[in-house]
Design a protein around this nucleic acid. Structure first.
Lengths: 136, 136
DNA sequence: ATCCTAGCTTGGACTTTGTCTAAGTCAACA
DNA sequence: TGTTGACTTAGACAAAGTCCAAGCTAGGAT
């Protein structure tokens, strides 16, 4: 069983076959899938799994902090299983492919107090855009 | 007439009443509206304006670089008329309100060559998240 | 081992956001 | 003032996601 599933079980999750399959899809080699892509892969293992369950499970994993939601400019959100290590994203404007990247410096410290409008800042995300070698 | 409309006319736009109304809505006090909010405000001035025209006009303004598209995590894209001055966004996790902010430092320079995967980087956007004074 | 039940899953209807199309309209130039 | 190609319209369509009532089941209780 994957680390992800073990952590989820430790949080009191009921360990259903549907949740197991979704976690295994995310934990596999394929990263940054859309919810529909996750569903398609899950169906190939567990044909009767419903879209609603995939959406529910992804949403629960996100709110537990186990999976990161990535809002690219396309329509569908993507899900990144690498949520436990801080990282940012680099997206190809041509083909939409996504890489995890690790910029230097402290993003939050870069925002001066006078620019915070009294907000309590909890985080920052960067999206780099460019053209990948295949598209440029 | 607003600066925005003058610039659009200078680019060869046909100046229709629909485009004028959309530009005026964006140029007003209200920032970061969704397409539907733009449509709602436009309708109150020009009741017969269609949703399709609002979407078309916003899309054209974005591709001309006059308006910036902001993908928050919510469902609908928002449109920021302040596209001509580089800035980033600070979003309240409670109420969803958005402020323009200006962090220090060079985001692109913060990404080491070894982290670029051969991409030609064209830009970077930051989204800060936190709680505004009313929500915290 | 089996029962119970709260929590999970399902299919399908529904909503939201956005795109497309064919037909009609009109801004701007001649 | 007429012409014309760009613009607008209503409504159908599509994509992505949410919600609900009914049925199922994992895992603790017995």
């Amino acid at each position: 069983m994957s680390d992800l599933l073990e952590r989820l079980r430790g949080r009191g999750w009921r360990l259903t076959s549907q949740r197991r399959v979704v976690a295994e899809v995310l934990d596999g080699e394929h990263v940054h899938l859309t919810a529909d892509e996750v569903h398609a892969r899950a169906v190939s293992v567990l044909p009767e799994i419903s879209r609603a369950t995939v959406y529910n499970t992804l949403g629960e994993m996100v709110s537990l902090g186990e999976v990161m939601e990535v809002a690219t400019d396309g329509r569908a959100k993507r899900y990144d299983p690498n949520a436990r290590h801080a990282h940012q994203h680099l997206i190809c404007s041509g083909c939409g492919s996504i890489r995890d990247v690790h910029p230097q410096g402290d993003l939050i410290a870069a925002l001066p107090a006078g620019e915070r409008f009294g907000f309590v800042i909890s985080g920052a995300e960067v999206t780099y855009r460019g053209l990948c070698p295949d598209c440029s």
